[in-house]
Design a protein around this nucleic acid. Structure first.
Length: 483
DNA sequence: TGAAATGTTGGGGCG
DNA sequence: ACGCCCCAACATTTC
């Protein structure tokens, strides 16, 4: 029996249930079909496509080492699968499920069409710890608050059974023709990816290495260090998880092993915190499944009428490119631009500035992140932005406004992060590194900083814009009371 | 996974 | 010795 194994965002051989199932039935034909237009208007951005290219290279090598070739095609998924069935005589198609609204619809249609044509079509869970429909409150409604959600997940028992990668993959000798990876045109035409390539090693091997390193080096101190953008304390597994180069069950399994090895209380706390972050990812995916409209509109209905401010393009570009005059924000935005990644603490700070101090619509920020992050994930991005804007699940109340100066002093206490990414401020003394506008002229001068010259003055008054944001919250509350 | 304003407490300087 | 004030430190409330 021949099975088409349809790879999508499960680009791994370990812990891949569709692959395991396909191998049981005989010969496997691995396929990747590039069809970005099927993801609705959330088609992958530049950084994601860069990652995808290199992941497909890696997957191709991993498959070849086991005796199988990855067939790459582009075009409508259903038609392409049907072509491949005709060309190969495959009798079944297996894949692992995705949970974004547009893709659920597409995959439902494909499954039905294949079955109607007498082809066996089966999907599996590689991406989540639990199916979204399997976690619910007593009354059957989905959770909208993280803490009780996660408590229930832990109570159900987090799965950490992982099937190893197969040693060999049996495949038909007459392989269907594929296109070259280059023909998909995933890599940028302009040469902006040097900084990204330096930091990242896409692919399953890179993912497993990163997880192993993190478990040995960082997880014990994670509880504290995860909040420090100036330290290398994050797992940085997010892009791997997004493309399925590693799965959450593998992360959970690694936690179990690490707990057995580490005795200390701090280590256990670090491990719990890390697993909890995997839980946030899980929560985001469950939410997007239950509330598919939230990719484009607030989960909290009170916010659907709120007029977000029109922010002029100059100001938005200052935010996008890290020229706001607020050091922590600029450091974070430049790190994103250069490396395709931003520390989570920094994400909250830059998002708070955009949505609350500048008053911009959260989608403005979500779209920029979508284009620039290598880990851009519709579920996590939606949850993150709505959380910060105050209009989503378990949301920070609208009045919760981050102060980037205080956040900098607390979480970048030596100013290392700012100095690294905003070199024009590097010589400022620590006292002023997060608020150069308060530095005396002489201090600025000896540090080589010219406010309004080689470093901008703040594009927004933090105190005043905070008051305005709070005023908006008052309006929302009043509207609710009257409604 | 806030920040700022306001309230409370207690030590120490001082007349 | 005592009351008074100041203010830091901490807690609570409010946005």
């Amino acid at each position: 029996m021949k099975t088409l194994l349809w790879f999508r965002r499960d680009l791994r051989l370990t812990d891949n249930p569709a692959l395991v199932r396909a191998l049981e039935d005989g010969q496997v034909i691995p396929v990747y079909i590039h069809a970005p237009q099927e993801e609705g208007h959330w088609t992958p951005g530049g950084a994601s496509l860069w990652w995808l290219h290199h992941s497909l290279v890696a997957l191709g090598e991993d498959l070849r080492a086991r005796g199988a070739d990855l067939v790459i095609r582009q075009g409508p998924s259903l038609e392409t699968l049907q072509d491949l069935i005709r060309e190969t005589g495959a009798q079944q198609v297996f894949w692992n499920r995705l949970y974004e609204p547009a893709l659920i619809e597409r995959d439902k249609g494909i499954k039905q069409a294949l079955r109607d044509a007498g082809i066996k079509a089966e999907s599996f869970n590689a991406a989540l710890l639990f199916e979204p429909w399997a976690v619910a409150k007593q009354d059957g409604d989905p959770y909208k608050v993280f803490t009780p959600f996660w408590k229930t997940c832990l109570g159900l028992g987090v799965p950490c059974d992982v099937t190893p990668a197969p040693k060999r993959i049996r495949t038909p000798s007459d392989r269907p023709k594929g296109e070259t990876l280059e023909s998909l045109g995933l890599l940028p035409e302009l040469d902006w990816d040097a900084g990204i390539g330096e930091l990242w090693q896409p692919g399953e091997a890179g993912a497993l290495e990163r997880l192993a390193d993190f478990m040995v080096e960082a997880v014990a101190g994670y509880d504290e260090m995860r909040n420090r953008p100036d330290r290398d304390g994050s797992s940085r597994l997010s892009p791997y998880l997004h493309f399925g180069e590693i799965g959450p069950r593998q992360a959970a399994a690694a936690c179990l092993v690490a707990k057995a090895r580490h005795g200390g209380k701090a280590a256990h706390q670090g491990i719990d915190s890390f697993l909890r972050e995997i839980g946030w990812r899980e929560f985001a995916h469950h939410l997007i499944y239950h509330f598919p409209a939230t990719t484009d509109e607030p989960l909290d209905p009170r916010f659907r009428e709120v007029p977000w401010s029109q922010v002029d393009e100059m100001t938005l570009n200052a935010w996008r490119r890290g020229h706001t005059g607020i050091p922590l924000v600029d450091a974070a935005m430049r790190a994103l631009w250069t490396t395709g990644w931003m520390h989570n603490r920094a994400r909250m700070v830059v998002a708070s500035l955009l949505t609350k101090n500048l008053g911009a619509h959260w989608l403005t920020g979500a779209n920029w992140f979508w284009d620039t992050l290598v880990d851009a994930d519709l579920a996590s991005n939606t949850l993150g932005w709505q959380w910060t804007a105050g209009c989503g699940a378990d949301a920070a109340p609208y009045f919760r406004v981050f102060n980037p100066v205080l956040q900098g002093e607390r979480f970048d206490p030596d100013g290392d992060y700012v100095r690294r990414w905003v070199p024009e401020l590097a010589r400022l003394p620590l006292k002023y590194i997060h608020k150069p506008w308060e530095a005396p002229e002489a201090v600025l001068k000896s540090a080589g900083v010219r406010l309004g010259g080689n470093y901008p003055r703040p594009i927004v008054d933090l105190a005043e814009s905070r008051r305005q944001a709070l005023g908006k919250w008052e309006d929302i509350k009043r509207a609710k009371d009257e409604g």
